[in-house]
Nucleic acid binder design. Sequence first.
DNA 1: CAGTGGTCTAGACCACGGG
DNA 2: CCGTGGTCTAGACCACTGG
Lengths: 239, 239
Amino acid sequence: MTGDMGLPAYLRLRNAFTRAVEDGTWQPDQAIPSEAELAAQYAVAVGTVRKAIDGLVADRTLQRFQGRGTFVRRPEFNSLLRFFRLVGPDGAPATPKSAILAREVLPATARVVEALKLRAGAKVIRLHRLRLVDEAPILHEEIFIPLARFRPLAKMPLAEMGDLLYPLYERICGQIVAHAQETLTIDVADARDAELLATAQNAPIVVIERIASDHQRAPLEWRTTRGKASGFAYKIDIR
Amino acid sequence: MTGDMGLPAYLRLRNAFTRAVEDGTWQPDQAIPSEAELAAQYAVAVGTVRKAIDGLVADRTLQRFQGRGTFVRRPEFNSLLRFFRLVGPDGAPATPKSAILAREVLPATARVVEALKLRAGAKVIRLHRLRLVDEAPILHEEIFIPLARFRPLAKMPLAEMGDLLYPLYERICGQIVAHAQETLTIDVADARDAELLATAQNAPIVVIERIASDHQRAPLEWRTTRGKASGFAYKIDIR
DNA sequence: CAGTGGTCTAGACCACGGG
DNA sequence: CCGTGGTCTAGACCACTGG
């Protein structure tokens, strides 16, 4: 807090609050101290605290509720996935079911070492899973996570892993995914895609590569998702 | 301004300012009145004017410059196009060159009528153009605009049309594009794609459909852009 | 009801831009 | 230099939530 001397007060507060979220002083889904308390604690006007919080609300770190308080937001990692036709029989958005096809522990290849910023020869867990909506395969994913951080997942019964990995990472391994970067490209179906996704070889395939990282920007997971391009539509509004 | 009686003052101001932009009282690239002036004019505190402007800055309607003033922003419609490899020989982002392959005036088909919300039988101008970077064809576009609004473009020498259409729409036809909605999907190359883009038939193609509209949300243009998927990468950061 | 965030005021002083 | 937006204050009152 005593650093950043040249910065405006509201930015110093913003940094302090960001740190509180990142180091776990303020926990996800928990209320932070009231604006009046923070103003007293940092010896600034309430308006200055509000301005600091405004910024963190804008970047979705925090969330305000009138009359209840201000809360640390837990990020949602729907991501580009949501642009596949992920709807259940009722038409509502559905979390795809997961079927884990393979799990193995192996030395990281050069590409994995680079993506996860590991030292050469480090071991990783590789997961290969199929995701289905309404029994139909929608996409399949190859996932690499460093064994050092995720050792409990190397032996855990696959049946207990459930459909969502990030809550598992947090609950079982204490690893919190705070950011992710995704890149969408287009490829054509190889033999494995064709078999898993019930499509023709050389049909267009959407490929999403994701690096997920923690609050310290350390890479936690490298994931490559492949799905039939025919089930994909991405919409944006400009201005 | 006298409407919206139940709304907070800053939201009434926000609406009034939005209207000023939409009806042209405040012109693109022009400075709006100073915060102090607006506060006096609307009989509110400067802080309330600032809060109203904050919202419009956040949604990119306005742009602030310390010491200079607050300006009406002219939207840029790079859009999803920018995710093709649009770089010149120097590596800097380049506006693709345009080569108009066809221009015709014809009655709108059912799809065009729907996209542009025309009455049945209305006439439209159809443009078909190829866009090139560094002499290489990157994508081609089919564009429909209602003849009623864009009559000057039906006869204008093609050589005078230049590489960018929206400035032309504004300068020659007085039509200002204020919003656009784009949808990205994947298709495979048909015979025309293969010829124009120098690719194999059935190769994956990125298709971007765009409806561009004016401040009143009236559709001005329906555009379908097709480019080789191999030159496409879309990156996003989550949280 | 007490406590939270939401709105609004009226002022002070600072930092920057352009003539 | 003056006018602009940027920061910050100290307070008032409102609207909503929860017990």
